[in-house]
């Protein structure tokens, strides 16, 4: 019997090594695997490279991971932004390395990793400061730059419903980075709001097939926090 579910967040995160690249899904706290992020803080791995849409906001979640000095490098599309207080503080004293990426380039670099594509050309950022040091090439009269695949050692994902094979269904805009990160990492760890029986999830609604998922923990986290 295939059963990817584990009993606790600690068990789900066991074995994450110092120096790992960790893909953390979610967009503005919606579909964000908050229990797994908190668990990673407890787990203790250091020297991490974190890939997340922002460099953290407020003092919780990714911001706290950075604040505790556990992130060597952050890869994101929003570095300084509303509420990025902890990142700014750590960055100002040289305590963290930053790689800033256009949001679509970030997603596509992970998609490439998931699909076995080592690198690809894109028009995004061609002719801008972000293209400095990158190979460029002209196709059909337009300039493109070379971007490399961005695989993770670990992905942290939040699903709405999951079965024991790791098939995942997402809720509303909670899908965001979850499917691409789930597919782009060697070890994909999922927290799910609800567990379903095998065969219960409608196959046409499964957005992440279980093949990408390694560990599954049931966390009834409830709705994302209310925005003001």
């Amino acid at each position: 019997m295939i059963d990817k579910s584990v009993r606790s967040v600690a068990e789900a995160l066991a074995g994450i090594k110092d120096g790992a690249t960790v893909l953390i899904a979610g967009f503005a706290q919606v579909g964000e695997p908050r229990a797994l992020i908190d668990g990673l803080i407890e787990q203790g791995a250091r020297d991490l490279t974190v890939v997340h849409n922002t460099a953290g906001r407020g003092r919780e979640g990714v911001a706290r991971l950075i604040g505790e000095g556990r992130v060597r490098k952050i890869v994101c599309s929003f570095a300084r932004s509303r509420g990025s207080v902890i990142f700014e503080e750590v960055f100002a004293r040289g305590g963290i390395e930053l790689e800033i990426l256009p949001q679509g380039t970030m997603a596509e670099r992970m998609r490439a990793a998931a699909a076995g594509i080592p690198a690809f050309y894109t028009a995004t950022a061609a002719g801008t400061k972000l293209a400095e040091g990158k190979e460029s090439r002209v196709f059909n009269g337009r300039e493109y730059i070379l971007e490399h695949a961005l695989p993770g050692d670990v992905a942290l994902v939040e699903a709405w419903r999951a079965d024991r094979w790791g098939n995942l269904v997402y809720r509303d805009a909670g899908r965001n980075f979850n499917p691409v990160m789930a597919a782009a990492a060697t070890l994909t760890i999922v927290q799910t709001q609800h567990m379903a029986e095998l065969g219960e999830l409608p196959p046409e609604e499964i957005a992440t097939p279980g093949i990408y998922v390694d560990r599954l923990v049931h966390v009834a986290a409830g709705d994302p926090p209310l925005k003001n």
Binding site: A55, S77, F78, A79, R80, S81, F87, E88, F91, L98, I100, L101, P102, Q103, G104, T105, T124, A125, T128, L130
Partner: peptide, 8 residues
């Protein structure tokens, strides 16, 4: 340390 998001 800018914010680019999806603009590019």
């Amino acid at each position: 340390a800018p914010a680019i998001g999806g603009a590019m």
